[in-house]
Amino acid sequence: MQLIRCPWCGSREEVEFHYGGQAHVSYPENPAELSDAEWARYVFFRANPRGPLAERWVHAAGCRRWFNAVRDTSTHELLAVYRIGEPQPEVAR
């Protein structure tokens, strides 16, 4: 079982966390102005790279706070964790 470092609580077991999909996909400023295709892209499309991906996680069975993490999707290694509102850190792959 993986250890995930909550930026508020420290390292905890992965069962305490829930996954929230790709991070930094913000809600569009004005959805009404988007075409169907643009809106569909926001609602349904997410990156699926092999390698580092910034993701949202929530410490559901702990402090219940959301945070962001950069995870290598091929190894599951969490390369960085950072709080909501903080910029995505550069990570060496």
Binding site: H18, G20, Y27, R56, V58, A60, R65, W66, I84
Partner: peptide, 12 residues
């Protein structure tokens, strides 16, 4: 959870 996610991530 759904409400909490929006409160914390989209509209802090």
């Amino acid at each position: 959870d759904w409400m909490e996610e929006f409160a914390q991530t989209e509209w802090p």
